[in-house]
Amino acid sequence: METKEKLQEAYIKYVLTNGEQPKTVFIFAKENDMPEEEFYNHFTSFESMEISIWAGLMNTTVAEVKAQEVWGQYTSREKALSLFYSFIELLKGKRSFAIFSLKKAPGSIGNKKLLQGLKSKFEVFSAEIIQEGIESGELMDRPFFANKYKDALWIQFGFVLNFWLKDTSPGFDKTDQAIEKGVNVTYNLFQRSPLDELLDYGKFLAKNTNVKMPF
C-alpha cells in the first residue's frame, strides 16, 4: 500500500477511536513514525486529506460498477442507479467516519468543499452516461438544458446522501427506495416529454403557417 493510502487509513482509524481529529499534523505524523514534512508531501492539511478520502470513495465505486459483467447491457438510467446503490453500499462500511466528516464540514451537502473532489469525479461519470443516453436516444437532447442534466443528478446525489445519513430503517432499506424513486424521477425529466412535443408543434406551426405565435 502506498504511503498516501496508509496515511488515509491511519487518519480514519484515529478519528473513529478518538471521535476527533488529531490535535496537530506533527502529532499525527509522529504516531505514524514519519517526520512532519513527509506528511506534507502527500497532503497539505487534514481537510485536504478528507477531501481525497471522499474522492477516493467515488473512484472506487465507479471502478466497481464498471467492472460488473452486466454493465454493458445497462441503460443510462440503470447505470446511474447502479452507481448510487454501490456508493451507498461502500459507504456503509465507513458510516461512522462519513457522519463525523460530513457533520463538521460547513455548507449544505451539495456545496461542501469537503465533497469537491468527489463531485468532480461524479460529474465526469454523469457526463459520460448522460452522453451515452443521448446518443442512444434514451434521453432527450435539449439545447442548453442537456448540459444541466449532470447538475440535476448531483442534486439527487446530495438528497440521497442526506437521506442515508438520517435513515434509521433496518439495512437502510428506505435509502434503497429513495434511490429507486429519486433517480427515476430525475431521469424521467431527461426523457422526451409532452412538453417537448408541444414545443416541437409550436415550432412547426411558426414555420409553416402565417399564424403569429402569442409568445
Binding site: Y74, R77, S82, Y85, G171, D176
Partner: peptide, 13 residues
C-alpha cells in the same frame, strides 16, 4: 418492474 441495479443491490444485501 423494479430496476436491474436494485435487484443486484437487494441480492447483495
Amino acid at each position: 418492474p423494479l430496476s436491474g441495479p436494485l435487484i443486484v443491490q437487494t441480492f447483495h444485501k
